[in-house]
């Protein structure tokens, strides 16, 4: 799980162009949207693409997005459960 979380942080930084940010700057329990990393709706789409492109996981129900993309840790748990 730790390796997956680290990979995810690096992939998020690259996919979302979060320049000047290091993986250690992202708390895996911190909220990705809202007060946390402050991501927006375009970033949400980018994360959906990331899951499909890098992990072959397609989110069938858009309503699940809020839970899956709550934090890096929740993303990692979802990936682990669906791979």
């Amino acid at each position: 799980m730790d390796k997956l979380i680290q990979d995810l942080k690096e992939e998020i930084i690259e996919a979302l162009n979060l320049e000047d940010m290091e993986p250690d700057d992202i708390d895996e329990n911190e909220a990705l949207f809202g007060d946390g990393l402050g991501l927006d709706s375009i970033d949400a789409l980018e994360l959906i693409v990331l899951l499909e492109k890098n992990y072959g996981i397609k989110i069938e129900n858009p309503k699940d997005g809020k839970t899956i993309f709550f934090s890096v840790k929740s993303m990692a748990e979802y990936i682990q459960a669906h791979q």
Binding site: A15, L16, N17, I42, L45, E46, V49, E52, K53
Partner: peptide
């Protein structure tokens, strides 16, 4: 490998 980037598209 069809993964257009929403962040690029905007």
């Amino acid at each position: 490998s069809y993964f257009p980037s929403p962040a690029n598209f905007v």
